[in-house]
Design a protein around this nucleic acid. Structure first.
Lengths: 177, 177
DNA sequence: TATTGTTATACTCTATAACTATA
DNA sequence: TATAGTTATAGAGTATAACAATA
């Protein structure tokens, strides 16, 4: 168990760098430019979520998928609606909610952006074997699923951690920032 | 080739979600809480970079590693210095530069934070086989290396893309946002 | 009374531009 | 003249709180 964690410890800095690259303004700016879009990053992300889902989603579902709070999604959906890249329909089953649906114009932009990133990623790993390509797709897919699953489990049973027990062993590590 | 790209297309949304999770404020807030630190995220990232490097680094090196611009690093290094989590020494070889070195207190915080993330990641994949764990470490490591390599190649030969040729085939795709 | 979403506000993150000092 | 870094400023990204409407 301790050994497992040691092994995985090497993965943390790697993932940190990977996320830094994909999340960097530089990376986004370049991909957006090649996609001929002036949309802000969260707007493009929303289009991507809707495209991947293949069906209209609620604000809450989009927020959850993006790991952000709802108001953030609301604001960008409003901008997207003005540009007619999404449209909103009242959810017949629950009239508090309104479903966000991607329009053909929105889907075109999402597909173009994804195509740019895809081509770029593909170019980055041209030297990989067929087997390694299949493996990374399988393992990253599984990692995403398990990480999200684990995260939602933590959130269910977690809220008591706001004020840690000062007498606990963990608190004894505490170091002043 | 077109097929390769199709396959990798599935990887894009997965990576997007993975990076969204690791980069989300929620995730950071939780890990920081468990690490008993009140440092801001970029400060913690800087400590992580210094810890991983194992030697003092220049501002420019840290910025490059984080994929951000130098002024951003400067500001956070100044905060870290006030808290005595890093110290700065003039580079004897080039007196324009000053090396940023992590202090024992800073290293303690970085290690604790990494430990939290590591344990959390380890818990998320407890059900994985030994083989899959080794594989994801190997493949993600390779992916990071290749992606960074490819990115730096693009930056070398890229700057001409600011104003795409309006007559090109690519520009013909252009769709108004 | 709980839940879905919106509006208002503020803070964090990051880039660009202008500047200083050394090479 | 070019490079490493800093200071100043502005804009993008996101969270929290207060509210409205429906369940």
């Amino acid at each position: 168990m301790a050994d497992d964690r040691e092994d995985m410890g090497d993965l943390v800095p790697k993932l940190a760098r990977l996320t830094a690259v994909f999340n960097s303004g530089r990376f986004y700016a370049r991909a957006a430019e090649l996609s001929y879009t002036t949309l802000e990053r969260p707007s493009l992300t929303i289009l991507g979520v809707l495209e991947a889902a293949g069906e209209p989603l609620r604000i809450g579902q989009i927020a959850s998928s993006m790991q952000v709070e709802a108001p953030h999604v609301t604001r960008h959906v409003q901008k997207l609606e003005k540009k007619q890249l999404v449209r909103r329909v009242v959810d017949a089953d629950d009239r508090r909610a309104r479903l966000v649906a991607i329009t053909p114009a929105g889907a075109a932009i999402a597909a173009r952006y994804r195509g740019v990133v895809m081509a770029w990623l593909s170019d980055a790993i041209t030297s990989w074997s067929e087997r390694d390509r299949k493996e990374i797709l399988r393992l990253v897919t599984r990692l995403v699923d398990d990480v999200l699953e684990h995260l939602s489990q933590l959130e269910e049973k977690a809220p008591a951690l706001d004020s840690p027990d000062p007498g606990s062993a963990a608190a004894a590590w505490a170091v002043t920032d």
